[in-house]
C-alpha cells in the first residue's frame, strides 16, 4: 500500500483527518455566488468548498419533445473536468469520471427528483418545448468535486430565467428574459466515503485516493432518496449503506440551507 494511503488510514483509525477536521465536517466556509456569467448565461453560479471550486451555467434551447413524453421539456447536463483545474486531468474527449459525474450527480440527481417540473417546459404539446442545458466545469480540484458539482448545478438552476421566445418568428431573444425557472424540490447529492471502518464526507484529494468505496446519495427536503451511485473498487455492507444514507440526509439539510 502506498505511503500516503497507509498514512491516511492510520490517521482515520486514530480518530483524525489530515487537516484536523471531524469525519462529518465540511471545509469552511462553503461559498455560493450567483450570476457569475450573467451577461452570457441564462443562469450561473460558483461554489467553493475549501479550495475546491466549480462553476455552472445554464443555456436554453427550443426543441421537439420526446415522442413518449410529448407534454414535457427536457433537462440535460454536462460536466467537464477541466485540465485547467488539476494536473491529473487530461485534454481530450470527456473522461469516464466526468461522464459518471454528469449522469449520476446532475442528470439523475436533478431530473429524477423532479426538481424542475418538465411539464412546465412544454410550449406546444408534441411540437415545441424548452430544453434546459446545464454545463458544469471544475476550476480547482482539491477534493470532493462531486458534492460541489451537485450544489453548483442547483444554484445555477435557481439563478436561471427563461429567455424571451417569440412564437411567431420561432426565435429566442437571448437579450431579454421572462420568468424565473422554478424549483419544486432541492435535491442535494452527498458522497459518503468509507476509509477503514469509518465514514467521512468532504474528502481531500489524498482521502479520496485512500478510500476504497463510496456512495453518492441524493436526498430531497422530505428525506426521500432520489438517486444513488456506488463508487470505488470495494464492496459495502447493507449496514454501511444504511449508515451512509443517514449521513447524507443529515448533511443534505445542512447544504440545502445555503442555497
Amino acid at each position: 500500500m502506498s505511503l500516503i494511503k497507509n498514512h491516511i488510514i492510520g490517521l482515520v483509525n486514530a480518530g483524525k483527518r489530515e487537516d484536523g477536521r471531524g469525519y462529518l465536517e465540511y471545509r469552511k466556509p462553503i461559498k455560493i455566488e450567483y450570476g457569475i456569467s450573467a451577461k452570457s448565461a441564462e443562469g450561473s453560479a460558483r461554489v467553493c468548498i475549501g479550495d475546491t471550486e466549480v462553476i455552472a451555467g445554464i443555456k436554453m434551447e427550443i426543441g421537439t419533445p420526446y415522442p413518449d413524453t410529448p407534454d414535457q421539456g427536457s433537462l440535460q447536463a454536462n460536466v467537464e473536468l477541466l485540465p485547467l483545474s488539476s494536473p491529473e486531468f487530461e485534454s481530450g474527449p470527456p473522461s469516464i469520471e466526468s461522464i459518471e459525474l454528469s449522469r449520476s450527480v446532475v442528470d439523475r440527481g436533478i431530473r429524477e427528483s423532479r426538481a424542475v417540473d418538465l411539464k412546465k417546459l412544454c410550449i406546444k404539446e408534441g411540437e415545441k418545448s424548452w430544453i434546459i442545458l446545464i454545463d458544469v466545469y471544475s476550476v480547482n480540484d482539491n477534493g470532493n468535486l462531486s458534492d460541489a458539482i451537485g450544489l453548483v448545478a442547483l444554484a445555477a438552476l435557481k439563478d436561471a430565467k427563461f429567455p424571451k421566445y417569440d412564437k411567431k418568428t420561432d426565435k429566442i431573444d437571448f437579450k431579454e428574459h421572462t420568468e424565473q425557472v422554478k424549483l419544486k424540490k432541492i435535491p442535494i447529492p452527498i458522497t459518503v466515503f468509507k476509509i477503514g471502518s469509518k465514514y467521512l464526507i468532504d474528502p481531500t484529494i489524498n482521502e479520496e485516493k485512500a478510500s476504497d468505496s463510496r456512495l453518492m446519495i441524493t436526498t430531497t427536503e422530505d428525506g426521500e432518496i432520489c438517486a444513488m451511485q456506488k463508487g470505488g473498487n470495494s464492496q459495502l455492507s447493507v449496514e454501511d449503506v444504511e449508515k451512509m444514507v443517514e449521513i447524507a440526509i443529515e448533511k443534505g439539510k445542512e447544504l440545502r440551507k445555503l442555497l
Binding site: K39, S40, E61, N78, L133, D135, Y137, F174
Partner: peptide, 18 residues
Amino acid sequence: CNYNMMAFSGSGERIKPG
C-alpha cells in the same frame, strides 16, 4: 496553449464543447 469558451459563455445559443 488551449483557449476555450465555456458552453454558456456566448451571447446566443449554447456553444458545443470541444
